[in-house]
């Protein structure tokens, strides 16, 4: 069974011409690549293109993968990162800044466990966080996407980005500070609104 093989073995088989190995490897790793590209670019189109490019690269130049340097998934995310950054450099319009967010963002699914009001609040929070993440400079955005959203360890993130773990930590610290700075005004405005409502109720 191909699904029992690890990523490196699948990659070897794929490079030897095994289509099933490619299918298994793709289905195992495409989600992470796609989500990374989507969270980095905010565009489904870019995410699809990047996912395709990454696996085409793997088919063409998969022999450059060195197991001693890291896992296949880290290798794929590293390739995806390069493609995303390249796309963002070439097509500046694909990098939404501030409120100018791409329209084809993923639809956020409401949880059935929450009441409609809480659900709406949660959706708003997620949307504001998503916008804040997309507005970060790319070097901070990628550490947030990898460490916070993809839940990848600092060590593996350092492998993907090709930098030291300390750099990852410091960038993540800085990125969180930037995110807080972006999210705080919205939160304060929300608090102010609720305070106004409360005072209105008091005066009523």
């Amino acid at each position: 069974m191909k699904s029992d093989l690890n990523d490196s073995e699948l990659l070897r088989s794929m490079l030897a011409g095994d289509e099933e190995a490619l299918t298994v490897l793709y289905r195992r790793r495409q989600g992470a690549v796609y989500r990374f590209a989507l969270q980095m670019s905010g565009s489904k189109t870019v995410a699809e293109d990047v996912t395709q490019e990454v696996f085409l690269f793997l088919m063409r130049d998969g022999h450059v993968f060195d197991p001693a340097k890291g896992s296949v998934s880290a290798f794929l995310l590293g390739v995806a990162r390069n493609y995303v950054l390249r796309r963002m450099r070439v097509e500046q319009q694909l990098m939404p800044l501030g409120d100018d967010v791409d329209d084809d963002v993923p639809v956020l699914h409401a949880s059935n466990d929450l009441c409609p009001l809480e659900d709406l609040t949660r959706a708003e929070t997620i949307e504001s966080v998503r916008r804040a993440v997309l507005s970060l400079p790319s070097k901070y955005r990628e550490v947030v996407v990898l460490c916070e959203l993809q839940d990848i360890s600092y060590g593996e993130t350092a492998e993907i980005l090709g930098c030291a773990i300390g750099t990852v930590r410091s960038r993540l610290h800085r990125a969180r500070a930037l995110l807080l700075a972006k999210l705080r005004p919205a939160a304060e405005a929300e608090d102010a609104d609720s305070a106004t409502v409360k005072s209105a109720r008091c005066f009523a």
Partner: peptide
């Protein structure tokens, strides 16, 4: 709050896959 927001965003997108 930031951690909760990021976790919520991650959980919302965790099932997303390429078409």
């Amino acid at each position: 709050m930031l951690t909760r927001g990021l976790q919520a965003l991650a959980s919302e997108m965790k099932d997303l896959e390429a078409p």
